[in-house]
Design a binder for these strands. Structure first.
Lengths: 206, 206
DNA sequence: ATATGTGAAATCTTTCACAGCG
DNA sequence: CGCTGTGAAAGATTTCACATAT
């Protein structure tokens, strides 16, 4: 929110804190400590306290943290105490699976438009959405004011799609294509690439 | 390979180097420099040189790096100059999409078994595999010697599945369930969670 | 008694800058 | 000359440890 100069690495940990606290909430846990939270996530208690202290004083000395209060604060910090509309580009296998995935809605993310350039896919229904012609994407997305996009097209098409999304005013891109995207300053990209995650593990396998 | 004590953060960058070099290879580029590679990935040339120097002297002073040679070395380092069999647990929407994804094969990863506990799914064909009964998983996986697993079951079932995979001898888990897994020392987990990636970006959106 | 918030210390990571080699 | 490999310096991150509040 009114954060001055928080390191990226701190921000990158907050969603995991939130996720874990939301699970606690569901389990009926009202209060926790940096120690307990750290044990669940696998990081040190001191790190959690330091991270949170960047944003305010959320705990009570001797008592710990109210789970409800901390969830609320983290949602505000991460800007997820509202809902976000999302445009999905690429209606192939992966695009279908993601469009049908129920997990987004529970967290305030809602896919509201799907595009593809393949005439065989345009017009198809996915859930209650209809795949639209990618040629109209820039105009429709810009008019909608959507700020978040997902790319599920093949690697060779991904950079061109990213360029169009940027042209349409998108500021955050979740990229499922196995290629590194280049975007202007101020546009955020997160890369979801299972091959890369697998290779990070096979390194350690004899 | 014969690596002494390489920081995790260095290892985590190597797959991206490899991916980028493989793209260069496809484009017919025979030689590159730490500068060029860094520009493509978005990190400094010095960092790439330092990272690579942990494993050997792969470049030629004044000339740069042979793309083919570096690809080969990185594949050896990451243990991906061989193929890896994978077991997939969870044959729902997401499991189907992942099982049908063609990208793994090109990188030496091959899904060879799929399990689910839902009688409606057991026996179903996905590609040329048949969904098997999760009750038999531990025995079948252990007998197969498979070391890498993927979890695509709902959050509430994921920890139990992880425990079984560990029992079956799995050493690396790619977790698509939106929950933090606890595993014994020596077992590696990578978490693929789109919600977390989205929240890492919404922080920065006004 | 207990657990936070936080300066200071320790550790880790990145960048600098240049010797050295093709 | 051009670019690597690398010690040393700079910078970033994590941990320590304790004063402080309940």
């Amino acid at each position: 929110m009114i954060a001055k100069d928080i390191p990226d690495i701190v921000v990158s940990r907050l969603p995991r804190y939130l996720q874990t606290l939301e699970h606690m909430q569901k389990d009926g846990i009202r209060t926790t400590s940096s120690q307990e939270l750290g044990d669940l996530i696998g990081i040190s208690a001191a790190q959690i306290r330091k991270d949170l202290s960047q944003f305010g004083e959320f705990g009570k000395q001797g008592k710990g943290y109210s789970v409800d209060f901390l969830v609320d604060q983290l949602r505000q910090i991460l800007n997820v105490n509202r809902s976000w509309d999302i445009v999905l580009v690429g209606a192939g296998n992966l695009g279908h699976a993601i469009a049908n995935y129920q997990g987004f809605g529970n967290h305030g993310f809602s896919i509201v438009m799907i595009f593809d350039s393949d005439p065989a896919l345009i017009g198809q229904k996915i859930g209650n959405l209809t795949v639209q012609d990618a040629a109209q994407m820039v105009d429709l997305v810009r008019a909608s004011g959507i700020k978040v996009g997902m790319i599920t097209v093949p690697a060779q098409a991904a950079q061109a799609v990213a360029d169009e999304l940027v042209k349409a005013g998108i500021q955050a891109i979740l990229n499922y294509a196995p290629i590194n995207l280049t975007v202007p300053e101020g546009v955020h990209v997160q890369h979801v690439d299972p091959i890369i995650y697998l290779q990070r593990m096979t390194y350690y396998l004899a």
